[in-house]
């Protein structure tokens, strides 16, 4: 796009690690606050990052969140090595989830992760390959 990123940071996320879960998105939130981003943008980015991070923790083996600040937008890419999503349209539907029962008991797997990301993002892209992994791109305009 001809523009140079102002900042790029990478945060690893481990699948099935419910103790560290939330750490990457909390660091993304802190970073955005530190650079003086408007609070409503921080909130949207934090919610979308957390949902993306939890999807990796719940469904994938491992992955990372990459925060890139462009002059005109905040971009968060959540890329994982994992099972992929066989039906993205279905996964986008509120209430649909493939999360296991143990995870649901913790209050995850309500089928609201991708819909929440959609609400917070100006643009949401989901690229996935079954058996390989998923890449979610969240864009929030500045």
């Amino acid at each position: 796009m001809g523009l140079k990123p102002l900042l790029e940071m990478r945060f690893p996320v481990q699948g099935n690690d419910f103790i560290q879960a939330g750490e990457a998105s909390s660091r993304i939130k802190r970073t955005l606050q530190q650079i003086g981003m408007e609070s409503s943008l921080v909130r949207r980015a934090a919610i979308a990052s957390y949902e993306a991070e939890m999807n990796i923790v719940i469904h994938a083996y491992h992955g990372e969140l990459v925060l890139t600040i462009w002059p005109n937008l905040i971009e968060i890419v959540a890329a994982d090595v994992g099972p992929g999503i066989s039906d993205v349209a279905l996964a986008m539907q509120e209430g649909y989830s493939t999360a296991p029962e143990s995870v649901r008991q913790m209050g995850f797997g309500a089928g609201m992760g991708l819909p929440n990301m959609q609400k917070c993002a100006d643009e949401l892209l989901v690229e996935t390959k079954v058996g390989e992994g998923t890449r979610v791109v969240i864009k929030i305009n500045l």
Binding site: F18, I19, A21, G22, E23, S25, S26, K29, R43, A46, I47, Y50, M54, M106, G107, F108
Partner: peptide
């Protein structure tokens, strides 16, 4: 108000 009590509750409360 919730009956959940695991560490992820804190992550959510803190983010918001």
């Amino acid at each position: 108000v919730t009956l959940q009590s695991h560490p992820n509750v804190i992550a959510v409360a803190s983010l918001l």
